[in-house]
Amino acid sequence: EEREHAHTVEVNSLLPATTCSSSSSSTKGHMSEHASSSVLKVIHKHGPCSRLNKHKSKTPTHAQILQQDQTRVNSIHSRVNSKKQTKSVDDLRQSAATTIPAQSGSVVGSGNYIVNVGLGSPKKQLSLIFDTGSDLTWTQCRPCIISCYKQKEPIFDPSFSASYTNVSCTSATCSQLTSATGNTPGCDTSTCIYDIQYGDQSFSIGYFGKEKLSLTNTDVFDGFLFGCGQNNQGLFGGSAGLLGLGRNPISLVEQLAQKYNRFFSYCLPSTSSSIGYLSFGKSDGSSNAVKFTTLSTVSQGDSFYGINVVGINVGETKLPISASVFSSSGTIIDSGTVITRLPPTAYSALKAAFRQAMKSYPLTEAVSILDTCYDFSSFKTVSYPKISFVFDNGLTQDLDATGILYVVSADQVCLAFAGNEDDSY
């Protein structure tokens, strides 16, 4: 009974290996199964599989990762809330004097999963953070007229690509940038200029261009709309930019809808030393183990993917949280936010149930936004309760054993959830 509702693991297995375990068999199996669709490897930006983190010093501390995560969450909240007050673009045009709120889009720094794609002809490989919480795909571009941050791969130079073209200011795709970035596009020598600001003062500004995108050797797309960044600053951790997978027409998912019919899936690797995948298109053998729930829209944030949480189970206990707590705040699923945020009522119920189940382990000090941390250093194995989410239309999804704890070290292992400030947030 106990085993049924708890995970028992070796404390050592909680700690990420220092070497990259090349794609695990299941991923390989998955990769081959997806012959008909295109599959990219997903790696953790700060792990030993990433070519970006050769400079150990570059890896942020856990406190920094968690702090960046909070900044991202604040910016998502402000995007969702600001949508309530946002005037239509026409209003803004009419009241030219109105200060257009700098769209605090999503914060990239904390997003820590990257994929490698090819751009241009001949194609240049670039590591981009993939982000279901934002729409515009961009990368840094030579000649970096204003500024480029340090990135691992050579910075893309459109002047050496036979297939690069600028988007003109008068084209309809140029005006689409307003909804994708929250900022009205600029114009420079008749070339459309994009401007995307992120919540942590990161930003990318540059030419809006069209280029050949190679997702894999065989999946190549001409005329892919992306941002060629001439002024880029921020916490992008050595990656070359961002792959936007949100719901706006400018998102990669929408631009490649013809081929992939707005269908994509991913698996995020369990440790920073293992490999996952991001695949586009419905694969013929798509595992029928997949259980579905409703994809809903977030009224104030139409770029986000909404899901309806109705309850949470800890061990064999259904938490005493009324479904209205979840429905009044709504929930989005975001590959770029690290720690799940819950309405405070829900978080305090989860925290109480988890602490009750873990009362035989010593609590230790909190780290950043995580307030339920344990010292496992004197244990060889530990047991902790399973956690599952109940979504609408009756789907109950168990989290993986690795999806419950955030491991700073063996003596600081934390419950990987945090509460929002206010249920109505």
Binding site: S265, K282, D334, R341, D400
Partner: peptide, 30 residues
């Protein structure tokens, strides 16, 4: 708003079937 973050998504196959209006999950996919 609540956010289902990437720690909780670990090792799950997360499927976005936008045309079908659904999000899916499958366990132990990588």
């Amino acid at each position: 708003i609540g956010i289902f973050g990437n720690v909780q998504q670990k090792r799950l196959q997360v499927v976005y079937d936008i045309a079908g209006g659904q999000i899916g999950f499958a366990p132990a996919a990588c």
